[in-house]
């Protein structure tokens, strides 16, 4: 007898959008596209020259699209998600990144791929992203500071991108680095953190289907203050793990150093999975304030992605490996 185990990420029959609704949506999109075409006369390639508020074309719906969000999650406004940011390279106040990142140059942009892989080298941002179809991924975003948002990202599965560099068996971790450029990033002129910003994932975390490289938000090119041109988005971990404006990807055997862990090891572990049961020395992580709401809500294990990712940590003491 065939027993089919259902994973949380599998699509339920009830979750599938009825065809009539789907067709309506198509019609709506067509009309909207026609209207839009009048405004933007030039045809847009799938990865247009970088300018904020540029629409991204050819974004595919996924089971993490907005239609499939749980009932009590609704995407935050574009304004909220782009004006309230932690991006210390552009200043430590929440409004600083928006104020200071407007002239940030994201094109041309090159990413160095190094370490334990068969195809290392330098690759342009376009070549990194273009071979993979853009997907809509609406994720809950949980900051370690106990606030959260729901953000519709546009991106590509990280695993698909990494596979192209053919990581070897020595590649047990993958390390990421943000651009170091104090000229453009005024926050880097002060030693708030040990610049450049460093982050890392275990290889199986990086290959997990939920992990993406985000290049857009709200169907548009990702704004500078949110980590343009390309950032990580790992929705079951605290926000600081999702490193922004990536210039280096390195496969390695040992656990890589990470910036916040270097700054305060007791507060920020390598894993930093969202976990309401393990409180941070500064914040209880049991609850969070969803931006736009007054009352706090309970924080979910792995930020609500428990069924998808819990197996990655089987047998691990999550108190020790916080």
């Amino acid at each position: 007898m065939l027993i089919k185990h259902r994973k949380a990420s599998d699509v339920l029959g009830s979750e599938i959008t009825p065809k009539s609704v789907f067709d309506d949506r198509r019609r709506f999109l067509k009309t909207a596209a026609l209207a839009g075409a009048g405004l933007a006369a030039s045809a847009l390639p799938s990865l247009p020259a970088y300018a904020a508020r540029t629409k991204l074309e050819g974004v595919e719906k996924t089971k993490w699209s907005v239609e499939n969000l749980p009932e009590n999650d609704t995407p935050n406004s574009y304004e909220d998600a782009t004006s309230y940011n932690n991006f210390y390279e552009f200043g430590t106040a929440k409004g600083d990144p928006k104020d200071n990142a407007q002239d940030f140059k994201t094109s041309p942009w090159e990413i160095a791929v190094e370490g334990a892989c068969a195809k290392p080298g330098k690759i342009s941002f376009e070549d990194l992203i273009k071979p993979t179809t853009l997907e809509e991924r609406v994720y809950r975003f949980r900051c370690v500071e106990a606030w959260s948002m729901v953000i519709p990202w546009v991106g590509v599965p990280l695993g698909e991108v990494l596979k192209r560099f053919e990581p070897t068996s020595d590649a047990r971790y993958v390390y990421f680095e943000t651009l170091l450029d104090p000229e453009q990033m005024p926050g880097q002129r002060a030693p708030v953190l040990n610049w450049p910003y460093k982050e890392g994932l275990r290889m199986d975390e990086a290959m997990h289907p939920l992990s993406i490289l985000a290049v857009g938000m709200y169907g548009e090119v990702i704004p500078n203050q949110n980590g343009a041109p390309v950032r990580l988005m790992v929705p079951w971990k605290y926000g600081f793990k999702s490193i922004k404006s990536i210039v280096k990807i390195k496969f390695q055997k040992s656990m890589p150093p990470t910036s916040w862990n270097e700054a305060a090891a007791r507060e920020y572990g390598f894993y930093s999975n969202v976990n309401p049961k393990v409180s941070h020395p500064r914040w209880s992580q049991a609850s969070e304030r969803r931006i736009g709401e007054i009352f706090k809500r309970k924080t979910l294990m792995f930020n609500g992605y428990e069924e998808e990712v819990a197996s990655l940590y089987e047998g691990m003491d999550l108190r020790k490996w916080y």
Partner: peptide, 10 residues
């Protein structure tokens, strides 16, 4: 207005 930022209580 947005003078209180996206997180007014904070």
């Amino acid at each position: 207005g947005r003078g209180l930022t996206a997180n007014p209580i904070e």
